[in-house]
Design a protein around this nucleic acid. Structure first.
Length: 226
DNA sequence: ACCCAGGGTCATA
DNA sequence: TATGACCATGGG
């Protein structure tokens, strides 16, 4: 995987889809809430859950910690896994307040902050990195299922790398540029949405000029990406 | 009726 | 370390 391949892919995506302006939220705290709620969940469902919190004026750590679990779960219902997410969100908010909130956490260097976030039950690698990049604006390249699949199908990696192996391999090729990482991850997600099962054809993929599998029969095992 | 979505934890081998 | 079960709503 070379710097050139990564930049060529990025520029093709940016040219095709334009800037995505992530993360869609009004505050860093809302980014973090969204990062937990969007775990294996469509973003439209997360929006409903967040709207429920806003509607009841509960989109803050103190209100969430004080809320009854069954009430919180009810507000989170549209985002799926609502019982587990109620516990996770509350865990996170309790920890967040104990740490002194956003300002206090912002003083930590990136690696320390990453370890701290990962220590919270319910916050895994991708959720932590979403928070690091989109809430704390640290140059961390977020890896999700799309990223692994895309770079694997483009022949950049084998696909067997674990989370940090893949993340570090990418970061090693790019400048630690928050704006670049922000847009790159958002564009990978945007690209995946363009290849839902309605249009599973490699012929429509905007990355075909970079794809070794271009022209091969369309894949139907998952959302089609060449 | 089926597949999937901007994952993570826990138990098991 | 590597799988598998589990969590659950909503759209295509």
């Amino acid at each position: 995987m070379t710097r050139r391949q990564l930049l060529a892919t990025y520029h093709s995506l940016l040219l095709s889809f334009g800037a995505q302006h992530w993360w869609p939220a009004d505050s860093p705290f809302e980014v973090m809430v969204g990062a937990i709620l969007t775990q294996n969940t469509a973003w439209t469902n997360v929006e409903r859950a967040i709207a429920n919190l806003v509607e009841r004026d509960k989109l803050d750590a103190t209100s969430i910690v004080r809320a009854r679990n069954d009430h919180l779960a009810g507000w989170l219902r549209p985002s799926g896994y609502f019982n587990i997410k109620a516990v996770r969100l509350k865990n996170f908010c309790r920890w967040y307040l104990e740490q002194g909130g956003f300002r206090a956490l912002s003083r930590l260097p990136t690696q320390s902050l990453r370890r701290a976030l990962l220590s919270v039950n319910g916050v895994g690698h991708e959720t932590a990195d979403d928070m690091l990049l989109y809430a704390f604006e640290r140059p961390v390249f977020v890896i999700d299922a799309y990223t692994r699949r895309l770079f694997s199908r483009l022949g950049f990696v084998t696909g067997n790398e674990n989370y940090d192996e893949l993340r570090l391999a990418i970061e090693a090729q790019l400048d630690p540029d928050v704006a670049l990482y922000n847009e790159y991850h958002a564009l990978i997600v945007r690209h995946a949405k363009a290849h839902c099962r309605v249009k599973p054809h490699c012929t429509e993929c905007v990355l075909n000029h970079l794809c070794p599998a271009a022209g091969a029969p369309a894949r139907r095992d998952q959302a089609g990406i060449c």
